[in-house]
């Protein structure tokens, strides 16, 4: 089988080889292992899976993981928008450094981020001391600490999805709005934000998906107290250590299903936003 357009031009060769390699690779590394995740829990039977997931500790861990991921991503929305705006629209000393620093959470190993954030927000840390003195907030070893870690890992997703859209948007629409007599807040609220909304939602979804499954940067700062600050991925690790493979897989499958539901919901919301603008 050759690829390329059927007539005149010579086809680009190599479809058979590259597609074969790709399918073998994807099949072995991604599809078969994930199939194991989809199949394994049902060894317990439907009732067994339900029972395994209905344990209060599991429900609490899922709630902590998804709650903290949503909270962190919501807080990150304005922060990410601010950073993207600064990168595209503003000119100030240090903008290039800022551009590189944004990707730091992508490049820094999660365990390093985890102990660094814990050191910062610990009761005797650089930020832990002033936050405690000023507001009486303890961040480390609480759910707030989990959210802080998830904010760190999620921030670049929002900046990097909003940034190109903001760049492409140009200033024409804003100029037109201003010419038609809109004051600046009106322009921002009715022209700029609606244009950026789909990208913001995409970034939100990416950040959320990443945050839900995050492990390395969270376990150090979380405190890992069952029913309080225990995240779902940690529960998988604990169940595996007890050789409860099916129970671990059940939690993993539940996490994936919940994540996909959220992404699907965001997708629908995005369509609504787009349609509303037409």
């Amino acid at each position: 089988m050759a690829c390329g357009r059927p007539s005149r031009v010579a086809p680009v060769p190599g479809l058979g080889l590259t597609l074969g390699l790709t399918l073998a690779w994807v099949g072995l590394v991604v599809v078969i292992p994930l199939a194991a995740l989809a199949i394994k829990p049902w060894e317990l039977g439907v009732a067994g899976v339900a029972q395994s997931l209905a344990e209060p500790r599991v429900l609490s861990a899922l709630a902590v993981s998804f709650g903290a991921a949503l909270a962190a991503s919501i807080i990150n929305l304005p922060l990410g928008l601010l950073l993207a705006w600064a990168l595209v629209r503003l000119d100030f000393p240090g903008r290039r450094v800022l551009d590189s620093v944004i990707d730091l959470p992508f490049a820094l190993p999660t365990a390093v981020a985890g102990i660094a954030l814990t050191a910062l927000f610990a009761p005797n840390g650089w930020l832990g001391v002033p936050l405690m003195a000023a507001f009486g907030w303890q961040i480390a070893y609480t759910r707030a600490g989990i959210a802080v870690a998830l904010m760190f890992v999620g921030l670049p997703f929002i900046v990097r999805t909003v940034e190109p859209v903001l760049r492409d948007m140009g200033k024409d629409a804003e100029e037109a709005a201003a010419t038609l007599g809109a004051i600046r807040p009106q322009t921002l609220g009715r022209v700029v934000l609606p244009t950026l909304a789909p990208a913001l939602l995409t970034g939100f979804g990416l950040a959320c998906a990443r945050a839900v499954g995050e492990y390395g940067s969270v376990i150090f700062i979380a405190g890992n107290l069952p029913m309080a600050t225990e995240i779902a991925p940690l529960l998988i690790v604990i169940r595996l250590e007890q050789f409860d493979y099916a129970g671990a897989a059940a939690v993993g499958l539940a996490m994936l299903c919940l994540s996909f539901t959220i992404l699907l919901g965001l997708n629908l919301l995005q369509r609504l936003v787009r349609r509303g603008r037409r």
Binding site: P33, L34, A36, L37, T110, V212, G213, E214, Y215, G216, P233, L234, I236, V237, L240, A248, A249, G252, M255, L256
Partner: peptide, 8 residues
């Protein structure tokens, strides 16, 4: 999730 990546 990376943990799921190990789990599978």
């Amino acid at each position: 999730s990376p943990v799921i990546a190990g789990l599978i």
